[in-house]
Simulated assay, not measured.
Amino acid sequence: MTTAAPTSSIATNDHAEALAFEAPYLVEKLLKDHVVSSSEEAEALFREVKRYLVLTASSPTIAWGMYSLRIDQIWHQFILFTRQYIEYCRANFGKYIQHAPSTAPAVDGLPKMAPSTLDMFAERYEELFGEPLPDLWYDEKNVTLDRRIVNSRSHAFHLQDDDDMVELLSNEGEAVFAVDQTARSALEFIAHNGSFFVRELPGEINDEQRIALVSTLIEYKLLNLAS
């Protein structure tokens, strides 16, 4: 195992080795599987995985949510290296840290944990690491033309025209999003495709508008970033 220079922050007092840990085998796999486009991107995302684990270990009475699908994907990939992940957890936290959503049901016999919010997470993050929560944690800020997007609810929505606007309606008829008519064909494309690249959105909108549309839908939790 090799290590990098420790992060200068409160967290280094107890978790310097956890934060400095390097996993070149993970970076290699992420590149090979096209989960990331560069080793720099892989290292940046893995750094946030380590910081998330340190943060959760520092406040064990709170059920800290995982607020980035992208970072969560890297955490999952790390766990696939079972032996290395177990050794990392035991060496740095004294126990195996399970990959479980914050919405998982409580386990009988264990104390109930208080739920977290993104604001709580950001505040604790800055307290521990001495810097604001980076943009990597906001999936909607990481949309590019070449980013693949997943719509897990394709065909669960339909469109309704309303004068100069078009609304995205749920199957129950609830309006969940509205956009100018110039983006109608793009919104219709999104509603009927389970996976696509941002650059594929049709219609008379420019690339900046394509990115803005998808970013907003991700922020509304209607779409997700893909690996």
Rank of each mutant, 00 (worst) to 15 (best):
A11R: 02
R47A: 13
G173Y: 02
L31V: 08
S227G: 07
S116E: 06
N224Q: 15
M66I: 14
E219W: 06
M165R: 13
I205T: 03
E41T: 08
L169P: 00
M113V: 11
L80N: 10
V150G: 04
E126T: 10
L19D: 02
E219N: 14
A63T: 08
L53F: 02
L169A: 01
A44Y: 04
D108Y: 10
F196C: 05
N92D: 06
F121Q: 01
Y85I: 05
L69K: 12
V150K: 11
L80R: 12
F157C: 05
S9I: 05
E174L: 11
R199N: 09
P202T: 08
G194S: 09
N171M: 13
D14E: 14
E48Y: 03
I79R: 08
S38C: 07
I62T: 15
I218E: 03
F129K: 02
D108E: 14
E40L: 11
E17L: 14
A122Y: 02
D161S: 13
K50D: 05
A20Y: 02
S116K: 03
S37V: 08
E17Q: 13
V198A: 06
A23T: 04
K112N: 10
F157K: 01
P6A: 12
F81I: 01
H76R: 09
E188W: 04
Y96M: 12
D164G: 00
P60Y: 03
A156D: 15
L69P: 00
I211S: 02
N13R: 11
E123N: 11
L169W: 00
M1H: 11
T3D: 10
A63N: 15
Y67N: 07
A175L: 05
V36I: 07
N92M: 04
E40A: 15
S154K: 12
T117L: 07
F78W: 09
S154P: 00
T2E: 15
E41A: 08
L223F: 06
L222W: 05
A175S: 15
R147W: 01
A212L: 06
K29P: 00
R70Y: 05
H99G: 05
G94Y: 07
M66P: 00
M165V: 07
E131I: 07
E200F: 03
E174R: 12
A106F: 11
R147V: 12
R51K: 15
K29Y: 13
I62H: 03
E123M: 10
A106Y: 09
E87V: 11
A226E: 14
A186R: 01
F81K: 03
A191E: 06
C89Q: 04
F129S: 02
S102T: 09
D207R: 02
D33C: 08
V49C: 03
A20K: 04
A186G: 04
P101G: 05
E188H: 09
E126M: 07
C89A: 04
